[in-house]
């Protein structure tokens, strides 16, 4: 399914490099993302998927290169402003364990946007309903399953109504039987026309939901295109090898 509502460019990445000491993780990545696009980042562990996502919202500062969000360069100075518009979902959820599900969702709107607590709570409950967790609003993360925690984490990112959502292998830390409920929520977000960058090993999800698939290898984009092309008729040997490994595993 290819979303039709692809619109104006929202994110432009130009020749991003990232090194940790001597280790070159990203070796010049450029990418343009348009509004409404769902881009799946695939590739082996260590290929740079996570680092690319983390360079976009500057959890890691790129060694070189520029990231523009709505034509404005993301710098250390405007970081907090930019991050409000770029939601992020982590592999390990990173929910705040001392807060209930609802408080996890409402904290940022209250403290960052200054939304009135009553208003934030109303919105928070709506968003939790969206991820089908309205009943768990008052549970602490420790009382939720992994799939439920990840859905709360998605709701937490959505609460700021971001224009772009980054998903860093959101189902990799889940037990297999819990993966489906998280992908289901993400599928719905895609259908609503959300702009999403998803690092994932779920090839079925990529094929079904993504408008574009990027295959990362050793810090570069080796191959990119529509899912049916990259996933079914890859041009590169490395892509073929990778897909063979991933599909055999499943």
């Amino acid at each position: 399914m290819t979303p039709s509502a692809v619109g104006a460019p929202i994110l432009a990445i130009q020749d991003i490099h990232k090194a940790f000491g001597k280790l070159q993780v990203l070796k010049g990545i450029s990418l343009d993302v348009k509004e409404g696009e769902v881009i799946a980042l695939i590739g082996a562990s260590g290929s740079g998927k996570s680092t690319l996502l983390r360079c976009i919202n500057r959890l890691e500062a790129p060694t070189a290169g520029v990231v523009r969000f709505r034509n404005e360069e993301i710098t250390a100075a405007n970081l907090n402003q930019m991050r409000r518009e770029i939601g992020m979902v982590f592999q390990r959820f990173n929910l705040f364990p001392h807060l209930t599900a609802l408080e996890n969702v409402t904290l940022a709107p209250r403290k960052v946007l200054g939304v009135h607590p009553a208003q934030a709570e109303k919105q928070g409950r709506e968003i939790l309903d969206q991820v089908k967790l309205a009943a768990k609003a008052d549970c602490y993360p420790g009382e939720l399953s992994g799939g439920q925690q990840q859905r709360v984490a998605i709701a937490r990112a959505l609460a700021l109504q971001p224009a772009l959502m980054l998903f860093d292998e959101p189902t990799s830390a889940l037990d297999p039987e819990l993966v489906g409920e998280v992908l289901e929520v993400m599928r719905e977000l895609a259908q609503q026309g959300r702009t999403m960058l998803v690092a994932t090993h779920e090839m079925g999800f990529a094929r079904e939901v993504a408008s574009r698939v990027l295959f990362l290898d050793s810090g570069t984009i080796l191959e990119e295109g529509p899912p049916e092309q990259v996933l079914e008729n890859p041009k590169q040997d490395r892509t073929r090898e990778f897909l063979a490994r991933v599909l055999n595993r499943a």
Partner: peptide, 24 residues
């Protein structure tokens, strides 16, 4: 990951400390 999650929500360092790290 706690600090990263807080910062990725647009909280500045003091806010992340105040609301996320220090209570824990």
């Amino acid at each position: 990951g706690q600090m990263e999650a807080a910062r990725s929500l647009g909280m500045d360092y003091p806010a992340a400390m105040r609301w996320i790290i220090l209570p824990q």
